[in-house]
Design a protein around this nucleic acid. Structure first.
Lengths: 218, 218
DNA sequence: CTTAAGTGGATAGTGTCAATCCGCTTAACT
DNA sequence: AGTTAAGCGGATTGACACTATCCACTTAAG
């Protein structure tokens, strides 16, 4: 398929890199809402140039966030390599949230909703099994409560991410406080656990919840 | 000040009521994003009529949500009347979240951000001291961990509210699962509590966090 | 030196909303 | 029954925020 198109001219290639760097930066600090116009100007090139390289914003997002999700997958894998199952779970949550904290765009891709794109959805799906193992192992070892599900780690991230957004400018690390509370709710070493009122979501439903289009309001 | 303006004509009064009912309904089910146009049509009147009654959407929101916040304040007061401090905390969270679940508009006012309006901000401030008492009492009684702060209940709601939004259409009650996890993280009756990594926000900062304008992105 | 590739940015196009205006209708009062 | 101020509807205007194109100009590559 890839009919070896002749390589880009030197300046064009440079601009392409500048655009990607600029997009990476702006997505990270302002989220996916930035326009291609913003990206172009911040890169020091004209809008026309941006549109010559990328048909639309989606394409730029693709180009960047597969790598971001890959990084999260790597964190999951490393956490799985951790000898202690509990430490693995904690470190996955801590590191993954930290990454999302440093990159608003990644955060949105992880938590917000349908970035309809295939490649991104695939990458996200590649993370799921790792989380499953992470949780399963901790459960078998008795490090976490027996009724903890893999999807719980996802939704805990959704919740903490919202807290993170609301306190971001006032006390950036505040979300860690609530992560600690959550972790204390997940540990198995307590006198008696409250039975959970509703079962976890199936992987399929979790996926649906994470890819649904945002509701109309606001 | 209230120069006894002559009462509205009968049809006008009726339409005003219809508009408020319509707004209540649409805000509840779609959030504050609905336009005055939507509200008018759903009420079966023209836009002009809507604008004759209310200068803008803010005014409609005011008219409705003071009562909503008052209801939450009432829930807080009732929870405070609860003889058991722990039951009080739990019932406040449960009932307040339930209300927000049933009313997206209220949810947004509670969690989202600066609905700049004075009256609403005041009402919200009236809730804060009640929560303070609720937490203080539970802490003194030893029902919750000693390092729990009043502001924690606020942020827990922020987090759960995000979870609620993401699973709303797929499993409406899912947020209750995470409420249970959180509660288990808050209870004092466990073998050893993880020290919290960062202190809670002061009331002032909490207020700032809750009224900050949304960041540009998305 | 030639020329295809690349560039910038003004501008046209699109969609979403808030808010107004004005010809028509109707309640209220005599 | 007639008069009239109040009320009504909704097409329309204007503001805004973006997306995407076009084309005269510039430049890398051979």
């Amino acid at each position: 398929m890839t009919t070896t198109t002749r390589p880009l001219r030197k300046d064009a290639a440079r601009n392409r890199e500048r655009l990607l760097a600029s997009a990476r930066e702006l997505f990270a600090e302002r989220g996916l809402g930035v326009t291609l116009n913003d990206i172009a100007h911040h890169a020091g090139v004209g809008v026309g140039t941006a549109y010559r390289r990328f048909a639309n914003k989606e394409e730029v997002i693709d180009a960047l966030f597969e790598e971001g999700l890959e990084a999260i997958a790597a964190v999951a894998a490393e956490s799985l390599a951790e000898p202690d199952a509990w430490v693995g779970v904690v470190s996955f949550l801590e590191r993954s949230l930290e990454m999302q904290f440093g990159d608003q765009g990644l955060n949105q891709i992880m938590n917000d909703n349908a970035l309809g794109d295939e490649r991104i959805a695939d990458a996200r799906d590649r993370i799921a099994p790792l989380i499953e193992q992470l949780v399963e192992r901790a459960r078998v070892e008795g490090a976490v409560r027996a009724d903890l599900d893999q999807s719980d780690l996802i939704f805990i991230q959704v919740g903490l991410s919202a807290i993170m957004q609301s306190s971001r400018e006032i006390r950036p690390e505040l979300y860690r406080r609530y992560l600690a509370l959550f972790l204390d709710g997940i540990r198995s070493d307590r006198s008696d656990l409250t039975p959970l009122p509703t079962p976890a979501l199936s992987p399929f439903d979790t996926h649906r919840a994470m890819t649904r289009d945002r509701p109309p309001g606001s």
